[in-house]
Write a protein that binds this DNA or RNA. Structure first.
Lengths: 108, 108
DNA sequence: CTGTATCCTCCTGGATACTG
DNA sequence: CAGTATCCAGGAGGATACAG
């Protein structure tokens, strides 16, 4: 995400970075702790390798997370949020809280 | 959005309701004031009629907004947030604030 | 003005096989 | 383990025409 013509509206700017469901779920998981590739895949559940990898790479390019490769055998790759990624926590928290309320109202 | 098997994670529940960009933009606009169809269309800008209508109908079915038809000629249709829709404000605010910060950092 | 109805294109994302 | 490479299906979404 280069600094080229950001939308005038801040909400749209935010949507550019996390407009898709997968990125939000990745953020949710990494907000808790650093995770390995397969750990992340298992946690999200129904995501394919291709989609997980492409989202992780995009988020890395956007500066939301940091990818660290440990040259071991078998290889180990850890994903952790950058400061900018962690700064999204208020959004995730707001989504969490709203979800809680929604569940209370609609789930019996 | 029926009360059928909501996800265990509240964040996922929230994503079920507002996982797409268009819905977020509609919420952003209606958070300010009640709006008419064409007003909304013009405000969002690059959305087609079909997509705008389908999202509005989905959000109405989910109880996020209220659609009021005034039997006039020409017809007038107003969209306003329900209480549940308005309760999403903290999420929109968090997105707004994050977008502001992001713009400051990346837009010179 | 506020839609509905079609057609069509593109992209997201799943499934599978293979690799360092 | 952590991917890459391919192929393919489904749905999101645009364009256009038409209607009440």
């Amino acid at each position: 995400m280069m600094n080229k013509e950001l939308p005038a509206c801040p909400v749209e700017t935010t949507l550019l970075l996390i407009s898709n469901k997968w990125k939000v779920l990745i953020l949710r998981d990494l907000m808790e702790k650093t995770m390995r590739y397969n750990e992340l895949k298992a946690s999200i559940g129904s995501i394919s390798q291709k989609v997980l990898t492409s989202n992780l790479r995009a988020m890395e390019a956007d500066g939301l997370l940091i990818r660290t490769v440990y040259p071991e055998v078998p290889p180990r790759v850890e994903y952790t949020l950058s400061e900018q990624g962690r700064s999204l926590k208020p959004i995730l928290d707001a989504m969490w809280n709203w979800g809680i309320d929604y569940q209370k109202q609609n789930n019996k």
